[in-house]
Amino acid sequence: MQSFLDPEAPLVQIGDLNHVIYLAGIFVILFMLFKFRYQIKGNPKTAMLGILIFAIVQRIISGSYYILADEFTVTDSLPLHICRVVCYLIIFQYFAEQKWLDQIIFYFGLFAYASFIYPVGISPALHMLGLSFFMLHSLIIVYPLIRYFTKGFVPLLKGALQSTVLFVVYLTSMQLLNNAIGSNYFYTEERPFLHDLSEPVYFFLNMFGIGIGFVIVALLIHLVINYIKHKTEKPKNKKEKTLV
């Protein structure tokens, strides 16, 4: 039980067993999601209620750890970390049902993919924070897919631009908070890379780089959708010509 709550537990290293467990876990979840996509599509209210419950449970587990470990401070628990903000938005979206909010959730949620690929400051799988990490980031990755199955959600270029504007506001606010209280939101204080860059350069590199990244993702998704449409419509047109 001590290891499950141990605040000194060694962090995950890229390519180690815990990293492999996390990657395998998300692949299994995605496989099961696509396997049961028709059931999800046929029961949208149940699917969204499950998402809501899962998101709330995740927040409870995360908060409970910091209380049990006696580390419930703003600088340690970081309640406004971007993926946690996405979780709050998912909970809010259950009641709000705003199309633009799904766009923000998707683009802000891209950081969940990055966390699985390049884990920074992540606890091991058999740790309460590790469980919380896996639940949170899996939820963020799965959510847009469920919205696609149930609502026909598709990421848009407009959504990427909206997300870029909101991200600029978010990053600026977090930088000001870091300077004020010594927190490490968005890893601007304890950086995972680019240690030699000055603080202003690192800040603007994040700001513009991520905004450009959002747009690139939107364009790539648009290209893939058009390619799939072209491939599916071509056999259909050939079939119609043959019938004529």
Rank of each mutant, 00 (worst) to 15 (best):
G182F: 02
G25W: 04
S173Y: 05
Y148L: 13
F27M: 13
L166T: 04
G109R: 12
R84G: 08
V165D: 03
C87H: 06
K241W: 08
I140V: 15
N43I: 01
L17N: 10
A112S: 15
F116I: 06
L243N: 09
A125K: 00
F116Q: 09
V154Q: 12
P192Q: 04
S3P: 07
R84P: 01
T172P: 00
R59H: 10
R191V: 11
N226P: 00
L171T: 09
E97P: 00
S77K: 03
V20I: 15
Q93K: 07
E71V: 01
Y227C: 14
R191L: 04
L89V: 04
D196Q: 10
D102K: 11
F116D: 03
D16K: 02
E240T: 13
F186W: 08
F95T: 05
G209Y: 05
G50I: 04
A47E: 03
Q13L: 12
A69E: 03
S173P: 01
V57I: 15
V142A: 11
V28I: 15
V201I: 15
S132L: 05
I29F: 09
A55C: 03
L33Y: 04
I141L: 14
C87N: 15
T172C: 07
L30N: 01
R191Y: 08
G121I: 09
F186P: 01
A218F: 02
V142T: 14
I21G: 01
L223A: 11
Y202F: 15
F54W: 10
A47Q: 07
N178W: 02
L89R: 07
G121S: 12
S183L: 01
L68H: 08
I212G: 13
M32N: 12
K231A: 08
I91Q: 05
F54S: 00
Y118D: 09
L223G: 06
M48K: 14
E189C: 01
H19D: 12
I60S: 05
N206M: 13
P44E: 13
T73C: 06
L166E: 01
I90Q: 06
S132Q: 07
V154M: 14
L176V: 15
V74G: 00
T164W: 14
G50K: 09
P155C: 04
H81P: 00
R191A: 10
K236P: 01
